[in-house]
Design a protein around this nucleic acid. Structure first.
Lengths: 339, 339
DNA sequence: ATGAAAGCGCTAACAC
DNA sequence: GTGTTAGCGCTTTCAT
């Protein structure tokens, strides 16, 4: 059987109050008493019951991280950073996978499972930003919330993201600068209410336009079902079999880019000579592909840091005193071998 | 302010008992009463307080997953499967990263942080299996525990893993079968008390021996500091610059293999003609490398499924009535392009 | 079928 | 500096 505060108190011949003080270090305890209590704690193997503490404190010390899928390198790298940084703040992280399922996202926002987490960092995928904001607003009591990537209408919710338009512009501009003319885009997701893909598409068009290019043919803009390597490979096949063979591809994620790269090799094309490729995310795999992937690198560390900071502000502030923030983290173009 | 059971009861004109019954669905409630209570729950946006429920039940519904690092594809793929499967059992998963730090592993085993999780699935990395078992045995109250990979002495703890010796044997035998003679191994970790690497080395030697090969030169067995791509690349450099250039490499993880593959390309070698490569883990990236990676595929889905089943048995069984299990999950050799 | 009340383990307000 | 105790929100035994 596990021991409680009361057991320790009895055995040490003090009150629970004193033991509690020793454990939390909150009040001053006589050195001798503290010593004795410590020994009994060791002896009995006492561990505080966190459920009781949470009930008392009205907080659990647990925050949620909701992402589409953990096996995707971008998200697992980000999750790793978040877990590490959260630990530093004495928070525990529970991870939920939404799998691009709108209902899963809805459930999380409305605390379907009950009041476990003190706050939630969510990377919405399937949910329309408007509905998302609406849900967050009508859920009582409100969950402290930080959005990753998606922007809520009129900035009502905290949000952390890179400037997707500028980043996509940078990628496309780089391809133009190295002399490419028929630049394809892979990664539109017309079936989802996903602002991120739209913003990247916008940056792509903006760069082309500024360079005086005509709007690219529809055939050069490939939609995808998901953002995995397989989707990138499929899109690349369509491009290579299409009416106008591109001399460069801007993929909206590194996974898509790596899939495209794979397909280029399969078809016997040389990269970057025959076709250049730029990705987005700077995942570890891209550094070791053949050739290494040129990509847009969002500052993931900043994303982790600032979203936690944001969440902390909201959790510890007296109800909603803090205005919603829209934080843009830096990104940079990393030129490697594919473009 | 958030509403409690009491508030719902007052507003619906019933007792808390009745509301509790409606929420949990445990006892029979008159249809009319249930209806009314439901409405009030909706109206007030009532959500059960999980801390209170946990305190009462003596369980949190949260299990821990402790892995060396989340950003490593093998672990993130496995974590994704575990989270998904846990959800099906109404468990929430908190993830801890041990970063190959022995102290971090110790802390988790002795419930350093207090009594949060109902059970723990841990993939030990730095801790000696003997110490691990010792710690688990002396910690009171015991945490229900499932080991991933490492075996505890005399099978005192539940454990789920592939047959590492047989799998490494399969990989090496495949290289022999396709005519390779100077087969190197990358992935020994002499600085760690890590049984997994030792077992894979053992399988490698067993296959060579059975084929009548002399014991490979030390120079062909490359130790690594970690299991990342960079370590694989470094080991490959050493091999290519070494006294005896290998015609094949068996890497103890896919990440190592991909790093080695990268380096082979850098040096202008053809794969598999000049040098063949076999990995271990079957991570997604290996399917899209150039050429696609031949590897040993552990059945990750089984690992997730069975470790959770194991944990459930231990959590729900009256104290330690269940004998410790040592479960071996299937693996298979997946021949793709590199060997 | 429903109500009243005890108690899960902890913290902190209130005593001394 | 330390003891006593109420109460966090829930489930469940006992009573009706």
């Amino acid at each position: 059987m596990s021991s409680r505060l009361k057991d320790v108190a009895a055995r040490a011949g003090v009150s629970v109050r004193t033991v509690s003080n020793v454990v939390s270090g909150s009040a001053t305890v006589a050195a001798e008493t503290r010593q004795r209590v410590q020994e009994v704690i060791e002896e009995l193997g006492y561990r505080p019951n966190l459920a009781a503490r949470s009930l008392r404190a009205g907080r659990t010390g647990i925050i949620g991280l909701a992402i589409p899928e953990l096996h995707s390198p971008y998200f697992s790298e980000l999750a790793g950073l978040l877990v590490e940084e959260a630990q530093r703040r004495s928070w525990t992280v529970v991870i939920d996978q939404t799998r691009g399922d709108a209902d899963a996202e809805r459930r999380l926002l409305t605390r379907g499972g009950g009041r476990v987490v003190d706050g939630l960092i969510i990377s919405p995928w399937a949910l329309d930003p408007a509905e998302l904001t609406e849900l967050a607003a009508t859920t009582a009591p409100a969950v402290p919330l930080v959005l990753l990537g998606e922007r809520s209408p009129r900035g009502t919710l905290d949000r952390v993201a890179v400037d997707n338009v500028a980043a996509a512009d940078d990628a496309t501009t780089h391809l133009l600068r190295i002399g490419r003319r028929r630049i394809a885009a892979i990664g539109l997701q017309p079936h989802l209410q996903n602002g991120t893909a739209q913003q990247r598409a916008q940056g792509y068009h903006r760069a082309l336009e500024r360079a005086g290019h005509p709007r690219p043919a529809e055939a050069l803009q490939r939609p995808v079902a998901a953002l995995h390597r397989a989707d990138g490979a499929r899109a690349m096949t369509e491009l290579l079999d299409g009416p106008e063979r591109p001399d460069a591809v801007f993929a909206f994620s590194d996974e898509l880019a790596l899939g495209a790269l794979h397909m280029a090799h399969q078809r016997g094309l040389r990269v970057p000579e025959d076709i250049a490729v730029v990705g987005f995310d700077d995942i570890e795999d891209g550094r070791y592909s053949h050739p290494p992937l040129t990509t847009i690198a969002p500052d993931k560390h900043q994303i982790a840091l600032r979203s936690l900071q944001c969440l902390a502000d909201r959790i510890y502030s007296p109800d909603n005193a803090v205005p919603a923030q829209d934080l843009t983290v830096p990104h940079r173009l990393v030129v490697r071998g594919t473009a």
